[in-house]
């Protein structure tokens, strides 16, 4: 059964369908959350919340507006970004107060799983973007920065960053292929 059908059943309170849906989406959800949040313990917490939220809010899914997988990953990304921003704000507060930040700096995600070809292909396509397109997209999507923060980091006007984000995503679509 595909995720769309499962999610509709989950909305009807079907716990077996949820178990099956969990098997389908827990890997993508956890991986995405960990990519953004980085801290393993916090990642697990956020991923759990997302998966439970799927159970609670499955009724909000509207099949007419896109695929279930895209809805689920959009939700996971939103929650991950919310978490990483509040963690960043807390770190800044601590630093202002002269405390040492207690969040370990994970500059590389621990225990990388060999997402092998899949990862390689996305990387291949990201490399096809201009450097500014790529940085605008990845700083936002993978690192959870707002476009204002991205503009600051890249020393670009806000309008330019918005355009680079749009062009970057569009070009990525062309490269990744599969658009019928």
């Amino acid at each position: 059964m595909e995720a769309d059908e499962l999610l509709v059943r989950v909305a009807g309170g079907d716990q077996k369908a949820f178990e099956e849906l969990y098997g389908l989406v827990s890997g993508p959800v956890f991986g995405l959350v960990r990519r953004v949040v980085r801290d393993p313990a916090q990642s697990e917490e956020v991923a759990q919340e997302v998966l439970l939220e799927l159970w609670r809010s499955a009724g909000r899914f509207d099949p007419g507006r896109g695929s279930a997988l895209s809805w689920i990953l959009t939700l996971a990304h939103r929650r991950a970004v919310d978490r990483v921003r509040s963690a960043r704000a807390a770190t800044e507060r601590e630093q202002r107060e002269g405390m040492r930040a207690h969040h370990p700096a994970f500059d590389q995600v621990a225990e990388e799983v060999e997402a092998g070809l899949e990862r390689e292909w996305v990387r291949h396509c990201l490399e096809r973007l201009t450097s500014l397109q790529r940085q605008s997209v990845t700083l936002a999507y993978y690192d959870g920065y707002t476009y204002r923060e991205v503009a600051e980091q890249l020393s670009l006007p806000l309008g330019t960053v918005k355009t680079r984000m749009r062009d970057g995503l569009t070009r990525l679509r062309e490269c990744l292929g599969g658009v019928a």
Binding site: S26, P28, F30, A47, G66, L73, W121, L172
Partner: peptide
């Protein structure tokens, strides 16, 4: 709608097995 589908594609390359206890 279109751009969100593109953004979600970035997610697929990050999939990782979730901890079993989860």
């Amino acid at each position: 709608r279109a751009l969100s589908e593109d953004a979600v594609r970035l997610a697929w390359s990050t999939a990782a097995p979730a901890p079993l206890a989860m």
